[in-house]
Design a protein around this nucleic acid. Sequence first.
DNA 1: AAGAGGCCCTGATAGC
DNA 2: TGCTATCAGGGCCTCT
Length: 287
Amino acid sequence: MPELPEVEIVRQSLDKKIKNKRVKKVIVRNRNLRIKVSKEFVKFLKNQKITRVNRYSKYLILSLSNSGYCLIHLGMSGTIHLINKFKKNILTNTSFYNSAMIPKKHNHIELIFDDFKIIYNDPRRFGFFEIFENYSMLIKRLNHLGPEPFSKKFDLEYVNQFLKKKEKNIKSFLIDQNFVSGIGNIYASEILYLSKIDPMKKAKLLNKNEHKKIIINSKKVLFRAIKKGGSTIRDFKNTLGLKGNFQSSFKVYQREGLRCKRIRCKGIIKKKFVSKRSTFFCNSCQK
DNA sequence: AAGAGGCCCTGATAGC
DNA sequence: TGCTATCAGGGCCTCT
C-alpha cells in the first residue's frame, strides 16, 4: 500500500496526536506480522513517552523516553487509526471508543493513551513493529537502504555510479530500496512518465540527462503526492480514515488504454508486467 | 555481484 | 449463489 508520501501523511497526523504523550497500555492481538512482534514489545513501550515521530523512507520511527525506538512498517495493507475516547455518561461512568471508526478485523496492535488510542490494522500482515534499545541498533537495521529521493546523496554522481553496469530495466531500480528508498510501484511509473523514459530501458543505457530527469522528477512526484495527502488506490487512508487525493493526478498509473495526457502526444497508456509488478507507460513519448 | 524467481498473507474482483 | 483464478501500493530470501 503505502509509499513514502503515504507514510509521511501518517507521520504528520501521528506527530500532532501522540508526540509527548505517554503510552498507558499496549495490546498485541496477533504477534505474527511480517516480523514477529517481540516478547518484550509490550513491556518496552508501556509507560514510555513518545518524544518524536519520524519517518525514513517507508518506515515510521517512534522515539521513546527510554531512549529506545519503535520501528513501524505498514507493508502493503497496514493502516493506523486514531480513535478518540468518549465518556458515555456520568451515571454509568463508562467510557467507550467510537466503534464506527474501528475496522472489524485485523486490528493487531493497540497503543492506548489517556484519552485516545491508535490501532494498527493490517489484513495481509506484511507490515511490522520492531523495537530497538538505542540509536545505533536502529541505524544498523536501516543501513541497507539507499538515500531518499530528497537527499543530497541522491545526485548525478551516485545515480551514474549505481546504474552504469546494470543490465536490468530502470523501473526495477526505482522500486529497489537499495538504490533509492521510498519509491514504490505507483510513483515509479509516474516518475518515468515525467522523465519520458521507457520503463523497460536497460539502466546502463540511460544518459546523464535522463539521470538528471529521474533525480528531479522523483522529488517532484513525491512532493506533489504529499501535498495532496497521498494516493488512495484501494485502502490507503490517513489516521482519521480519510482518503488521499493524488490518485486523481496520476498520469499513467491505472490509466491503461487511455490517451496520454501530454499535449500533442497521440500515445496510449499501456500496462506491462516488469519484474512481476504492473507498470504503466505511454507507448509514444517514453523512449 | 547481479538477476530471476518464489514466498509471506487476506481480500476484492472478474469470469464461469 | 458460489466456485476458482488473478491481482494488490512491499520486502526478504534463495538459487544460479
